[in-house]
Amino acid sequence: MTAREEILGRVRQALGREPGQTPAPAPEARIRVSSIGLDARLDLFQTRLEALGGKVHRAVTLIEARDQVARLIGDSAAVASNAGLLRRAGITALPGVGSGFLEEPALREACTTASFGVTSADYGLAEMGSLVTFASSEARLISLLPPAHIAVLAKATLLTGLDELYERHPLPAEGSSSMVLITGPSRSADIEMILVRGVHGPGVVHVIVVEEDI
């Protein structure tokens, strides 16, 4: 007997179930979307993220967002993702910004030397100050390897929280192999409960929220 058959057999025996038996109806999923207006969501998002040591910048237009990114990275090297938003804002064309990586080795190489990783985010979650990124739109290493992460987020994509996210995406695996929630800078309290930022992931997180419709 294979391990699979044996284990499933043990499980069924333990539960008194037959192979293929339909499950009892599941308790209804609990999704409660709170109603918070868009402006309040942005304020809450900012409060939450900044409480964790992140920084929120507001930009009225994409051009303004680009200028803010340029100011943040200064003369340093940066890697930007292939997200349409970054291209439209002109961020991928900024001096010092590497972008357009389609193969992993080159992307990895660029990310290990860059000081900033610039991405967009699919959503923001106001209640916890989180960014949501799907692998289908964002390479994972850009928000992970460089010591600082800059995310550009459209204000209209700010959701209230987890409940609204899972209401919109009841099956997050459908379009992407990964959905990552990023809630503030990387941190650890493993040594004497003392907070240290940037242990493995970026210790600095900037989010530029673009207020115009994009």
Partner: peptide, 19 residues
């Protein structure tokens, strides 16, 4: 309120994903 990173991983890299 939430840990810093929450990863929801559903398989190997798909077509069009860079890493």
């Amino acid at each position: 309120l939430l840990t810093v990173y929450t990863s929801f991983l559903s398989g190997p890299r798909r077509r069009g994903e860079v890493d």
